[in-house]
Structure formats: structure tokens, C-alpha cells
Amino acid sequence: MKQVRLRVVNAAGLHARPAAVFVAETSKFASKIRVRNATTNSGWTDAKSILSVLTLGIEPQHEIELTAEGPDEEQAAAALANLITSDFAGKL
């Protein structure tokens, strides 16, 4: 299992469109991917569901934790870390 902790740097947090972009990325991978808001100490939720991601209320500068478990967990963790730390890589 791969686990990463990331700070959300985009100016808006994960509102509707960033959440959709995030879920589009997680959904590319076969691994089971879960996410939690470490700043609010939320529970873990399904990182492939927009609604679940939105329930986390992720604001700018919040830290999130991600776990990926499965055949492509390394690639999934790397791709998601890149997305978040690059301010969504121009996909917004």
C-alpha cells in the first residue's frame, strides 16, 4: 500500500470542478484509492466518488492523505501527488 500526505495548494480548495478533475484522475487507476482530510481529521472516503470527495470540505492549505492499494498503486500515488502539488497541472 502506498500512502502520501499532500497540501492542497490551489487557491480554491477542492470545490466542484477540482473535485471532478481529481476523481477523473483517480478513476484511471485499478487500485483502490481512499482519501481523508487530515486537517479536519475526517474519516477515510472513496477517492473515486465526487460526492465523497466533496464531503471532505477540502479548503486551500488543507492537508489530505491518500492511500492507494492495488496493482498500480505506485503510479496512482505519484500521479495524484503530481496533480495536487502542481495546482492541477492546468486542468482546471
Partner: peptide, 22 residues
């Protein structure tokens, strides 16, 4: 329908909405 004057003021309202509909 969601209307916001900025990108962040509605994030917690959106979280409530998502929880309500999850």
C-alpha cells in the same frame, strides 16, 4: 444551482450537500 462570488466560500455548504446526497 450553485452561485458563488469566489471559489471557496461555499466549500462547507457543498460538503453538507454532498453528505446529504451521498
Amino acid at each position: 444551482g450553485l452561485a458563488a462570488p469566489d471559489d471557496y466560500s461555499h466549500i462547507q455548504a457543498l460538503a453538507t450537500l454532498a453528505g446529504l446526497l451521498e
